[in-house]
Design a protein around this nucleic acid. Structure first.
Lengths: 301, 301
DNA sequence: TGACTATTGTCGTCTGGGCGACAAATATGC
DNA sequence: GCATATTTGTCGCCCAGACGACAATAGTCA
């Protein structure tokens, strides 16, 4: 299902992940897309300065600039930091490699480090007593997570699992707090990130309370398409088409929007029949963005 | 740990609003509610030191101490600040008095001040195109709100309306940003507040996606009872009973948990028949907290 | 390449709860 | 103290969507 290869994944894949033969894309793909990636292996090892160079200048949107509520909710913490801040932060961080489905932490864990995604994708979710999983958030490269549990001094409330092979930087609670205290600008940016998350969760809440499944799916697709915009999908894509460049199973979507898997399958099939979306290489393309936006207009959030 | 509505409201009512004879419950009574407010004009003007004296020494819980996810979500920003911070913050604030149902801001407004509730209660909500209202948050005395929209540089997304006669301090975006920048400790506390809100919204989301209406109502009641604990309800209350010391119509509850008003009425009647709750003076008492907690255990969030 | 697991696609069946429509009970403004 | 507005309480109808049950693919790994 999809690859979330947006700019991020490509970026990171090239500089950090690439093991020379296997990239995240390989997991999903059998043919072309990955061909280009394999070349990257040569320059696999990196230094922090590498990272700075790679991440900062790519022109990611500043947290202030986002016009879309959803996309700025996925504001890139790392890229919003200055060179010095990035350096100081990475200095106190520890890099970790996770295989797909590795748990970073579980509900009930004592750990309360903060994490920043280097490459890949982390799924943040809760599990109910009946086993139902509700995904609260996907964290993509550059994003920070775990922050909102820092000041609780209590157990983790949620689970964090690598959705694919993922690399994260972990920073201890203590160090991170110290970092924020000594870098007021960064603290302000952290506030911005949390603010964005509050808004996004608020939106999700309103949508869940007011909209039907079709609208919620439409919103999700548009949102993820926005997040992964800027990547030209390697597959053939018609003009005006948006690519939802993230690997999502129907079950994932269901857990994300609070619906059952079957309903998601059916609704997606329906949208496909209408010609609003189509499946391309395990991921979704929005053929008629307007069709979905029209749905959203009728919706609430 | 938390009491708020109680201590705070009482506190403020007495010092600013009040009249010395009117406590929070009076609001709920037919006669007292507004009557008391008119009296306040006499001593309406206050000094900052008044506020400091009144607010700070009461030993409100620090945002770090909360054990309950819900209640610390209503962490008291103002009381967590130091004397100096409070002083500096109030210095740049402007006090506003709102009548019940006054709009503080609406979706689409350009204003992006930050507000701190002095007394009363602010309802933060969104309205869908069909007119359905979804309440995201109630802000009680000491709480700060509007913060999460500061860094957007865009229109307000939500509405803020006084749920009853309410007093707030407003601080301009610019001043507040400057305040945080010059008071790193306060900035950290702001991060703590936002974190709590992220957690609370996450909970709400999971609950909405997984639990039925009865469980959601139970959770809401327990949560609000916790917020308002510490107040001995003026009405007769049996030992072990919890008082939900907030004025909520069934419609409010419905908007809060994403259900229809009728269902709320029915479910509440059901809980009453079971002897789990009872109505006292326009508000609800939880007669059997265990009954509700049992429901929550079966639930998800 | 074959065995296994994960994902997708489709049915019926069944129900929680939305919604319109009232009537009764309260609250609030004048 | 009345007139109006708001809130509560109850029905019955109806449907979006949950859920169980399979079958068909597609993907993974030894």
């Amino acid at each position: 299902m999809f690859y979330f290869y947006s700019q991020y994944l490509t970026l990171y894949t090239q500089s950090h992940l690439a093991t020379g033969h296997s990239t995240c894309h390989d997991k999903f793909k059998n043919s072309g897309r990955l061909g280009s990636l394999s070349n990257t292996d040569k320059q696999a090892r990196h230094s922090f300065t590498d990272i700075e160079k790679k991440i900062l200048p790519e022109g990611f949107s500043n947290i202030d600039e986002g016009k879309d509520t959803w996309s700025d909710a996925h504001a890139n913490f790392l890229s919003s930091l200055s060179k010095v801040e990035t350096h100081d932060l990475l200095k106190i961080s520890r890099r970790m490699n996770l295989k797909s489905r590795d748990h970073l932490f579980r509900a009930g864990d004592r750990s309360n480090d903060v994490y920043i995604v280097a490459g890949g994708c982390i799924r943040l979710f809760q599990v109910s007593s009946t086993g139902k999983e509700t995904i609260l958030w996907f964290s993509f490269p550059g994003e920070i997570f775990g922050m909102s549990e820092l000041w609780r001094g209590s157990d983790r409330q949620i689970h964090a699992v690598a959705n694919e092979a993922t690399q994260v930087y972990s920073v201890s609670h203590k160090d991170f707090t110290y970092f924020l205290g000594t870098h007021p600008e960064a603290a302000m940016k952290a506030i911005g990130i949390l603010s964005a998350r509050v808004r996004a969760l608020g939106h999700a809440l309103v949508g869940l309370a007011s909209d039907n499944v079709e609208t919620r799916i439409a919103r999700l697709l548009v949102r993820f398409a926005t997040i992964s915009s800027g990547t030209r999908c390697c597959a053939d894509s018609t003009e005006g088409e948006l690519c939802v460049n993230v690997r999502l199973t129907h079950q994932d979507i269901a857990n994300l929007i609070g619906a059952s898997r079957q309903t998601v399958t059916t609704t997606l099939a329906h949208l496909r029949k209408q010609g609003a979306v189509r499946a391309v290489n395990q991921h979704i393309h929005i053929v008629q963005p307007e069709h979905l936006r029209h749905l959203l207009k009728k919706g609430a959030a």
